[in-house]
Amino acid sequence: MIHATASGDGLARVEEFKGRSLWQDAWARLFRNKAAVVSMVVLGVIAVLAVFAPLLSPHPYDEIYWDRIQAPPDFANAHWFGTDGNGRDMFVRILYGARVSLAVGLLATTVSLLIGVTYGAVAGFLGGRIDNLMMRIVDVLYSLPFMFFVIMLMVVFGRNIFLIFVALGAVEWLTMARIVRGQTISVKRKEFIEAAHAGGVSNTKIIFRHVIPNVLGPVIVYMTLTIPQVILTESFLSFLGLGVQEPLTSWGVLIAEGAKVMEFASWMLFFPALFLAATLFAFNFIGDGLRDALDPKDR
């Protein structure tokens, strides 16, 4: 499981925003990007499906149908996507899995965002020795294999998948911190910050009022790329058998189960993989679209 640790570097060059018009511009440009628009629609549909999951299928997600174990898609019994190895409806399980997978992605990303942005902004803003020390810590953490962290977290917090992803977010913030620090350093030299300094505004206030809002662009882009990574990490953990506790499920768990029977119960792999792939594609295209849209030179 490889992490694109540096994918932010390219976008770190996005210039700071100069006012509302830029946001509006970016927005308009994003909507001209067909791939991004389609992706947003896809994500929207999946999110709606996940939210209304229990209303969309006659089957509860944990009901076992003993006479329909590993049954192919079947409209008579309303198993549109077939059933799994325990005789449970795949369609409703995929939707419940969507809840877990998406929640996990958002949760971990939010945690990494909070830590990464604060850490990076503080380091970049204070500069000097503190900055040096803080970035050294980041370097050390970077040199520890990500997998090791994940497994240790799994083992220690094994009981609760959400706790694990809070913890995972607490590991994922490193790249975010680097991007924000770089941005902060360049923002710091601008006139309006110096003006605020001269006006006696406190450091904390400057960081949260002025610095962070101005580095938001690249952060948002990086966020849209972190979410799919986290979802993929979750699926990898499921492959190792360390996924969410039954009878709850996630796309990763479903795919890991389906991968074992791909040759003759292909529906168990195909449908969850389709949902996962569509979601990952969508996030990535939105991320790329946002990057293009936020780059003022790109017109």
Binding site: M262, L269, A273, N284
Partner: peptide, 14 residues
């Protein structure tokens, strides 16, 4: 881009 992204849209254990 779609083709190249297959590698991160389909988990490698699949």
């Amino acid at each position: 881009m779609s083709v190249s992204m297959i590698g991160i849209a389909v988990p490698n254990f699949v």
